[in-house]
Design a protein around this nucleic acid. Structure first.
Lengths: 202, 202
DNA sequence: CGCTTCAGCATACGTAGCGTAGGTTCCGGC
DNA sequence: GCCGGAACCTACGCTACGTATGCTGAAGCG
């Protein structure tokens, strides 16, 4: 790891070029030959380092998950107010996600890479697990209203994903953060009395 | 419209079969030939009724949007409490979206159909517009805290999408509805005092 | 210093699947 | 009973993925 084993930088170059192209034009529109050409090699080199195109996509997705994990973990202090920390973690995430194209690849294209159902799904489930555990702890501490942590975690992540795309598309960061802050704050027991709405007819 | 013009039922059959296959195995995994075979015709018939595969996907997406619009419009009463109505509309949507496969096609696959950026996007923007207008009116009425309706609409739709997938995957409908109800309720001015969180360092 | 070896990469090919071109059938109108 | 066009089929081209095989240069070894 101290010295890069010669061809390792070729692999890195392929990854960098692929992320650029995927972000700019979408996963499907980019061909393996184009990636190879942009990296200064041929298709053979790409298939030497990656088993197939989906493998390349999964590796990029994995890197992005790692980036998310690293940046949020660096600023997340689970001993503070959990819900406030989660809002702050979202803001940190916002500043590290990159540009709109990267976000689109990460939050949209990656879902339809067929092989994601085996490889990349583990990363996503891990991310869901992080949020779910924080919510569970908050419930135990009484900082959170009694909701299903699993459901709340996934729904919040859906909100975060859409908020991310909105911010990167429009630049209206403070507006999106305000909404997210509101939504997360909704889970505080002191804020809202427990309301029950009648179910709609099935 | 009273009498089906002979081959119209072929077109409908193709659409029905395509939705089944897309829902079961995903958009990309299904070939045009498979759709044609399952519909009892050949590829030529499919390309007679649709310009290409994406056109077929867009048509299905359009039908699903129409279904959403019709069912929610039938139960939505804009003269009541807007936020409560929106939670009810979500529950109605939940019962009409179909199975998990359909939802996955609608909420995931459809996003990466390249041609969606021209055709299907109009439907989605219309849906966003509906939610945004309701939120705007709620703001004017004082039923809503001062947030950017555009941002709130898109973020809420992200939460709804994820909640939909969660319910169809796990069957935990009441848990998801409870979370959604909380989140929507967070936009009420009387529930939470205005809180300001310091921005994270850029 | 020459030979060997193998990682790293190139080249050529097979193949799946999308879309097209042109032909064929069948129904309605006159 | 002939004609026109809608509905559908058949055969083909093309793109892009993935594979199989060939080449090359650098490290190891005597």
């Amino acid at each position: 790891m101290a010295r890069v084993p010669r061809g390792q930088q070729t692999r890195d170059e392929i990854l960098a070029v692929a992320l650029r192209e995927f972000a700019a034009r979408g996963y499907q529109a980019v061909t393996v030959e184009e990636i190879a050409a942009a990296a200064g090699v041929t298709k053979g080199a790409v298939y030497h380092w990656f088993s197939d195109k989906d493998d390349l996509g999964r590796e990029l997705q994995h890197q992005l998950y790692d980036r998310m994990r690293a940046t949020t973990a660096a600023t997340f202090h689970p001993d503070g107010d959990l819900l406030t920390d989660m809002t702050r973690a979202f803001q940190v995430w916002l500043t590290t996600v990159g540009d709109l194209g990267e976000a689109r690849f990460f939050l949209r294209d990656a879902w339809v890479i067929p092989a994601l159902d085996e490889g990349g799904r583990a990363d996503h489930e891990a991310a869901v697990g992080l949020v779910r555990d924080v919510l569970s702890r908050a419930v135990d501490r009484g900082e959170l209203v009694e909701v299903d942590p699993e459901a709340a975690a996934r729904i919040l992540m859906g909100a975060w994903a859409e908020a991310t795309l909105y911010v990167l598309r429009t630049g209206r960061r403070s507006e999106a953060v305000a909404v997210i802050e509101r939504l997360v704050g909704a889970l505080r027991p002191t804020d809202t009395p427990v309301r029950t709405t009648q179910e709609a007819p099935a």
